[in-house]
C-alpha cells in the first residue's frame, strides 16, 4: 500500500480521508482530508486493525420466536465477520435466556463474547 482513500465515520461530516505510508509519522501513516483530529485516529485504526461489532441471531428452542438476537460485546476484526457468522449457524439456545447472557465465550479467540441482546421466555 502506498495511498488509500476512505470515508471517516466518526461523525456525520463523512470526511474523505487519504492515508499515506510515512516513516516520519509516529504511527507510520500520514492522514489528510480530515477536518478534526478524530479523523487521524480513525484512519490509522481502520488501516492497522479494522474492527466491527457483529450483530446477528442464533436459533432458540421453546420460545415464541425462532431466533434470538445476539451481538459481540466488543468489536472483532473485520476479516473475521464471516467466520463468526458461520460459527453462529451451529448454535442453538434453549429458552429462557436473559439479555446479556453469554452465548459464545471468547468467540474465535478474539477476546469478545457473543451475548444475547434481549431476554426471551
Amino acid at each position: 500500500m502506498n495511498k488509500k482513500e476512505m470515508i471517516c465515520i466518526v461523525c456525520p461530516m463523512g470526511c474523505r480521508l487519504t492515508l499515506q505510508e510515512d516513516v516520519n509519522e509516529e504511527k507510520g501513516y500520514k492522514v489528510s482530508g480530515n477536518q478534526c483530529h478524530r479523523g487521524i485516529e480513525y484512519g490509522i485504526m481502520e488501516q492497522v486493525n479494522p474492527t466491527r461489532a457483529l450483530t446477528s441471531t442464533v436459533k432458540i428452542k421453546d420460545s415464541s420466536l425462532n431466533r434470538l438476537p445476539v451481538r459481540t460485546d466488543h468489536p472483532i476484526p473485520k476479516a473475521m465477520l464471516f467466520e463468526c457468522m458461520k460459527l453462529l449457524n451451529h448454535i442453538e439456545i434453549q429458552a429462557p435466556i436473559k439479555m446479556g447472557d453469554i452465548v459464545v465465550e471468547n468467540v474465535l479467540n478474539t477476546g469478545a463474547n457473543i451475548i444475547a441482546s434481549r431476554s426471551m421466555a
Binding site: 461489532a53 450483530t55 438476537p69 451481538r71 439479555m99 441482546s117 434481549r118 431476554s119
Partner: peptide, 10 residues
Amino acid sequence: EELTGPEYAQ
C-alpha cells in the same frame, strides 16, 4: 452507549 434495538427496548 451503543445498544441494539432489542436492548434499547428492553
